[in-house]
């Protein structure tokens, strides 16, 4: 018995090497190591020219958090934008998922595809497309002006509203998918049972459907919240450098100004914020919200 078990164990080890071996090595060298490096660098002092000095210090964090830096404001702004984006995505995404699941019939797969396909296109192209449509000069403005529906062009570019609109546009599909999956996961006899026990469709939705899709909702919230929080292209291209989010500052310090240690500290602060908020989401949404993501 023991010998057989040991044999099994050895066999498993033999199989582990070629299967999960490569990814383990890859993740160690090209995910963990880089993250560890920036965490480490964030605790080093920075010289006047931005170079890293061989001396441990909390100076970067002190400057960022209490030194009157614009970073805390950018982080708070990012959280706010991401939350608003999240709520609006939920407001549109839930009805979409519900509609596909309930009325999609044999076109369910196609309807779902139609939600996802645009997100397979290039990010830059999509933002540019949105800008061309709603910006000024833009196609929608031109159209409305020609029809005489508006007398002067409406310019929403370079405002927080435009940034949020862009974020919703980019991340909406990621809200629909997990909610759809959790809707499809509901055993139909539960819905029938609630009708049978006297629930009207509205009451049924509130007492059965909504609680049973909680995992999907929070899964979707996580999937849209993280990327929206860390986004930097939407504010750059639609916000026109006037509405900076945390990601823009990180990119600016790292690439443009070359202040690696400072940028690393920013990254650590943002990551900590993300992890904390995901933890809250998972606490609220239960284990299922995690499963819905993967």
């Amino acid at each position: 018995m023991v010998a057989a078990k040991n044999d099994m164990k050895r066999k498993t080890h033999l199989h582990l090497l070629p299967t999960v071996g490569p990814i383990t090595i890859w993740i160690f060298f090209f995910v963990f190591a880089p993250v560890a490096v920036i965490v480490a660098i964030s605790f080093f002092a920075t010289g006047s020219g931005g170079e890293i000095l061989p001396r441990l210090s909390l100076e970067n964090y002190r400057l960022l958090l209490f030194g009157g830096s614009e970073y805390p404001r950018a982080v708070i702004r990012s959280i706010l934008y991401a939350l608003v984006t999240n709520l609006i995505c939920l407001g549109i995404g839930y009805p979409m998922a519900f509609w596909i699941s309930k009325y999609g019939g044999k076109f369910k797969a196609l309807l779902l595809f139609l939600v996802i396909v645009p997100s397979w296109s290039c990010y830059i192209v999509r933002i540019y497309a949105l800008k061309q449509l709603v910006g000024y000069p833009g196609i929608l403005n031109d159209f409305l002006l020609n029809l005489g529906l508006i007398s002067s062009p409406i310019n929403i570019l370079y405002t927080p509203a435009a940034v949020v609109l862009g974020l919703i546009y980019i991340w909406l599909p990621f809200m629909v998918l997990p909610i759809y999956a959790s809707l499809e996961g509901i055993n139909p006899s539960l819905l029938e049972a609630s009708l049978d026990l006297g629930a009207t469709p509205q009451w049924q939705f509130l007492t059965i459907t909504l609680p049973l899709t909680k995992g999907g909702i929070f899964g979707g919230a996580i999937l849209t919240f993280i990327p929206a929080l860390g986004d930097w292209l939407v504010p750059l291209l639609i916000g026109g450098n006037r509405v900076w989010m945390a990601g823009n500052l990180i990119e600016h310090y790292l690439v443009v100004r070359g202040k690696i240690a400072m940028a690393s500290s920013m990254a650590v602060i943002l990551t900590a914020t993300v992890v904390l908020l995901i933890y809250v989401f998972i606490k609220l949404g239960g284990e299922e919200s995690m499963e819905r993501i993967v």
């Binding site: 995910v31 993250v35 993280i226 860390g230 990601g247 990180i250 790292l254 990254a267 943002l270 990551t271």
Partner: peptide
């Protein structure tokens, strides 16, 4: 895929 892209990409650049 859970850490914001800017951070992961920035970390790779430094690394």
């Amino acid at each position: 895929i859970t850490v914001p892209y800017v951070i992961m990409a920035g970390a790779l650049l430094v690394y």
